[in-house]
Design a protein around this nucleic acid. Structure first.
Length: 218
DNA sequence: GCCCAGGTGGGTA
DNA sequence: TACCCACATGGG
């Protein structure tokens, strides 16, 4: 069913060109800035960093946390995110010689664990960095994905937010070949579906999954 | 004015 | 472990 849903969404929406970042560095910054935040606000913050010629780990390493916070202010929760960005960059230099490729390399679950151990990197941010910055086949599960799968009764109601995340990620990993380009596209398609059709209590008219079993109240 | 957005961590029971 | 809340800007 996971594969069938992908085929339908890809046929219905077409290519997504998701995560329009110009570099892996920008992906990492965007991944942290977008936590619980609309992407338009992230774009403002990234534009300010670019304007200040600070869109690199080396430059961010030089900035004080307060200076960084001021630059990323349009992204919201900017003091929190400045601390999280600093924590990431500190670890990158301290533990991986400043190399993102080294940090994101090695066995996938070990690399993921290294990210999860950092302050401010939860499962979704870790998977977004692995997939979009590292090209690693680590499926990104967001709120849309969880609701879509619940709506179509492909997962049980979550016991906890953590268990729900890992359950959904595991379902995609066991149902699909470990293909980063496909994981990338699939996540983007699920976000499209979530925004366009699969909203809480929304009707399923026009939805490419409308003929599949579902519960519109979820 | 109110709710939400491509979450996470800390505190409390 | 399982909730509850702070974090904060900009758009609908």
């Amino acid at each position: 069913m996971i594969g069938e849903i992908f085929r339908r969404l890809a046929g219905h929406f077409g290519p997504q060109f998701w995560w329009p970042a110009e570099s892996p560095t920008e992906v990492v910054i965007g991944a942290i800035l977008t936590q619980n935040t609309a992407w338009t606000n992230v774009e403002r913050a990234i534009a300010r960093l670019r304007q200040a010629e600070s869109l690199s780990f080396d430059r961010l390493h030089q900035l004080s946390e307060a200076e960084l916070a001021e630059l990323i202010r349009p992204a919201g929760t900017y003091r929190v995110k400045a601390r999280r960005l600093k924590a990431f960059i500190d670890a990158l230099h301290r533990d991986h010689g400043g190399s993102l490729a080294v940090m994101l390399g090695g066995p996938l679950e070990q690399a993921r664990r290294r990210l999860l151990d950092l302050h401010g990197i939860g499962p979704e941010t870790a998977d977004a960095i692995l997939l979009y910055a590292g090209g690693r086949p680590s499926f990104v599960v967001d709120a849309y994905t969880q609701r879509i799968l619940r709506r179509h009764r492909l997962i049980d109601p979550p016991k906890s937010t953590h268990a729900a995340y890992e359950t959904v990620r595991g379902l995609f990993h066991e149902s699909l070949p470990p293909d980063a380009a496909m994981f990338n596209e699939y996540h983007a398609l699920l976000v499209q579906l979530g925004k366009r059709h699969c909203r809480v209590n929304a009707r399923c008219e026009g939805c490419p999954l409308a003929d599949l079993p579902h519960d519109e109240t979820l």
